[in-house]
Computed example of a mutant assay.
Amino acid sequence: MTEQPSTLYAKLLGETAPIRWQELQPFFARGALLWVEGAQDLVAVAEAVAENDQARVAGWLQGGLLRKVDDGLAADLLARDPQLWAVVVAPWVLVQERAERPA
Rank of each mutant, 00 (worst) to 15 (best):
E37L: 08
L61A: 07
A90T: 14
V95K: 12
L24Y: 07
D53Q: 05
L66P: 05
E97A: 15
V45M: 05
R20N: 10
P82H: 04
L34P: 03
R98E: 15
A29P: 01
P91T: 05
A48D: 15
Q40A: 13
Q54I: 09
L73K: 05
W21P: 01
Q54L: 12
Q83G: 07
V89D: 04
Q62S: 12
V87Y: 05
N52P: 01
Q22C: 06
K68S: 14
R98K: 15
Q62P: 01
T2G: 09
I19T: 15
Q83C: 09
D81R: 10
E100K: 10
R98W: 12
A48K: 09
R56I: 04
R56D: 04
V49I: 06
L65V: 03
A46Q: 04
L65T: 05
N52E: 15
L66A: 06
R101L: 13
L42H: 08
G64N: 08
V36S: 01
Q96F: 03
L8Y: 00
L34G: 05
G72E: 15
Q96P: 03
L13Q: 15
Q40P: 02
D71Q: 12
Q40M: 13
E3T: 14
R98G: 11
A86N: 04
A58I: 04
A32K: 11
T2R: 13
A74Q: 10
L65P: 01
G31H: 06
P91W: 07
W92H: 13
A29H: 08
V89Y: 01
G38K: 12
T16P: 01
D41M: 10
Q4L: 13
R80G: 01
A44D: 08
E47Q: 10
L13V: 02
R98Q: 14
G59N: 10
R30N: 11
A58L: 14
A46R: 02
R67E: 12
D53C: 00
W21R: 11
A17V: 11
G72P: 04
E97H: 11
A48C: 06
V88G: 01
Q22W: 05
P102L: 10
T16R: 11
A103H: 09
L12C: 01
T2M: 09
L42M: 10
L24N: 04
L77A: 02
G72T: 13
P5S: 04
G31K: 09
A75P: 07
G14H: 00
R20Y: 07
P5T: 02
D76Q: 14
Q96N: 02
V95Q: 03
E100N: 08
Q4R: 13
I19C: 05
Q40K: 07
G59W: 07
L34Y: 08
G63E: 15
V88A: 15
Q40N: 10
R67T: 07
E23F: 09
R101V: 14
G38F: 08
A86W: 03
L33G: 01
T7D: 14
D71A: 12
K11S: 08
A44G: 10
Q96E: 04
G59H: 05
D71Y: 07
G14T: 00
G63C: 08
Q25T: 12
Q54N: 10
R56W: 08
L33M: 07
